[in-house]
Design a protein around this nucleic acid. Sequence first.
DNA 1: CGACAGATTGACGAGAATCAAAAATAGTGG
DNA 2: CCACTATTTTTGATTCTCGTCAATCTGTCG
Lengths: 235, 235
Amino acid sequence: MRKSQEIVSPENLDLKTFNIFKGLTDAELESLSQSLVCNSHKRGSIVYNEGSRINGSYIVTSGVLKIYKTGFDGKEQIIRFAKGGDLIGFRSIVSDELACTTAKVIQDAVLCYLPGDIITSFIKGNSEFAMSLMRLTCRELGESNKFLTDIAQKTVRERLAEVLLLLMDTFDLDEDHTLKISLTREELANMVGTATESVIRLLSEFKSDKLIELHGRKIKLLNIPKLIKIGNVYV
Amino acid sequence: MRKSQEIVSPENLDLKTFNIFKGLTDAELESLSQSLVCNSHKRGSIVYNEGSRINGSYIVTSGVLKIYKTGFDGKEQIIRFAKGGDLIGFRSIVSDELACTTAKVIQDAVLCYLPGDIITSFIKGNSEFAMSLMRLTCRELGESNKFLTDIAQKTVRERLAEVLLLLMDTFDLDEDHTLKISLTREELANMVGTATESVIRLLSEFKSDKLIELHGRKIKLLNIPKLIKIGNVYV
DNA sequence: CGACAGATTGACGAGAATCAAAAATAGTGG
DNA sequence: CCACTATTTTTGATTCTCGTCAATCTGTCG
């Protein structure tokens, strides 16, 4: 089973298109592109593991990854997804701790490795970069706290509706209102924080209520306002 | 009912003792102490409200605050506590968003206000400060993700044991193994993410099992290893 | 003393987890 | 491209944790 690790040339990569690098000078961008090593990773491959030491970060140029924690009984809790344009793994670099999540490819991806030293040197040398990285982290923290409250207080039904809407925001719908991302029922359950069977039952309830349509792993959203109402999602 | 807002002179405040300010130069510390306005806040007073715009941050010099989010049905979810030495409210400054939590005093506190501009200027001007603020945020993010997973996967019983241990780590025990912090049953429930009655029932179960002793709001930990086991808390 | 917030206990039901088994689908190798 | 296997999805039955409601009790404070 050949997985991941086919080198991709980073030359044709326009770093300026990555929001996070907007603040870098031309010289810094040059040194950045020198240090980048880009690889393609197949679905299923693990980029880094919870508990391991990470010495660098990865820029996602294409594909999708799930970032999750493993509970003490082995169940995964998906914290978020990463897609093209996202930077992953820098938390551990900055906080100087072991990785607190696992990053796994769920749609074939091209990732560019970025040594930790470069990140720290950019943070130290370029305050605008530092500020935007910090802004990113703070927003993520806000998200995480919101999600924490939802899981603690909302029912599974509410959370599932909310997750569908979240997936819509993150990955968009195609022309016919179908979520562009395909997840297994188990992955959905691991986002919602419930059992796979509960997700299945609720999805088919939503289907009978004409809120969604199911075609294998593809989910079509028929009635978004109602989903918003069910999920108690504001703004 | 006179609440909060008694001015306290900040002169006798040694900023160097605050970890977060370790990286600042003497000049910066000087300008910092010029800008500080310190007030005492009584139990029950709210420092800032979820959804409001914050223009500055607060250093906690003494006392305890709870930082919480309010769910759509009005129930509080406690995210964390802040005590002497902590900096609160800077997340919104950095991310340039409205406050995503409420900060409420639960033990009379002295707080020093710190204008947002100063924080941003320190971040921009002092890379060591930027780095340590970022480290703080990243650690908090790690915590939040861990807590998220726990709430999603652990039972109320496990979470209550874990919360008792967390309170031990955060606020210490006094000589006779009693938690130094006193919380209402409702506050405990809002940490654990459950109903008040459930906390009460489980606490009295723990008591019958000789794991804890209850004296009003004071909780004495009798069998910490067992609590660790129940809570599935590692390291 | 009376009022009030917080704590406690009991009864009950709903929501969700678990277990088991069958059906459908995807992935694999020849 | 087909057949075979493994994985995923689905459904049903059952159990049980936990939330809700209601009533009582306790302690505090003016």
